[in-house]
Amino acid sequence: MEDVYILAIESSCDETAAAVVKNGREILSNVIYSQIDLHTLYGGVVPEIASRKHIDKINQVVSKAIEDSKMELKDMSAVAVTYGPGLVGPLLVGVSFAKAMAYAAKLPVIGVHHIEGHICANYIANQELEPPFMCLVVSGGHTHLVKVADYGEYEILGRTEDDAAGEAFDKVARAIGLGYPGGPKIDRVSKSGNPEAIKFPRAKVGGSEYDFSFSGLKSAVLNYLNTASMNNEKIVTEDVAASFQQAVIDVLVGHSMEALDRYNFKKFAIAGGVASNSSLRAAFEEACAQKGVEFFLPPPILCTDNAAMIGSAAYYEYKRGTRSGLDLNAVPNLKLGER
């Protein structure tokens, strides 16, 4: 069978990224330009600033990805690009650029769902992983418990009713003065904190059994901080961070394990930015081992936004015959499993 080389582009949020991926599993290049320092000044991603930065950087990033792969644009089988979900301005830069470059190089374009990309990061990290399996996607905008029935076939078993897990990390980090981006900072300071110091609630929600809710937990943290400062009690940042993190992990692990029992999957994977959290990785490792379920996880660099994961997802779409038209548009609220 002929080898398939995909040049993938990702610009849905604040990373300008491009990668060349062979046969959906092998990274030939993976270039990520992070704008994080710029947005740190504002305590979060500013869409207009992100869009401007993407336009400034996209040619360099894509050229570098082609160069690093030791291949040429004309040797590619297709160009892939994230077309949603994400911020519309940033998405439009990637989509407009990718379509035009592919058109000029006479290559097909494949629009890719960003969350599908996060899930597919597991195919790169674990060559032997094949569907069906269950995947927990925990990122800045999503908390989805997903049944991966086959390549490109997804069913959402549970989702957050309010804040995404990453969003909760970011908001709590701001409240305890750690600043942006919150996830990695909470991860770091939690290592020297006591996860059992404060009992934060483990939310149960009304919807599907496997749905999540993190806004109650976030409010509980804010209440704790308010009460403590009103009573002039000393706030131990490390303990608050560790206790919050533990509450998130307990809920994520709890729901996932229940769903694994119910649906009888033998394989479980995690994906998305929050999946780079060290305690979360350890907790799932242990929980899956206890159940005798095989556990898969991408290295941290493939958990946060990157284009290699988009290249992997695009490969399976390519094999299914998916091709996008010249009128491909950005779809900021694209749903998983929709096209």
Binding site: E48, S51, I55, L92, V93, F97, A98, A104, A105
Partner: peptide, 19 residues
């Protein structure tokens, strides 16, 4: 328009690189 401008500029940058 910021968005309109970027669609045109991103398109021409993509064409330029591709060609």
């Amino acid at each position: 328009s910021f968005t309109g401008l970027r669609i045109g500029v991103a398109t021409v940058k993509g064409l330029g690189l591709g060609l």
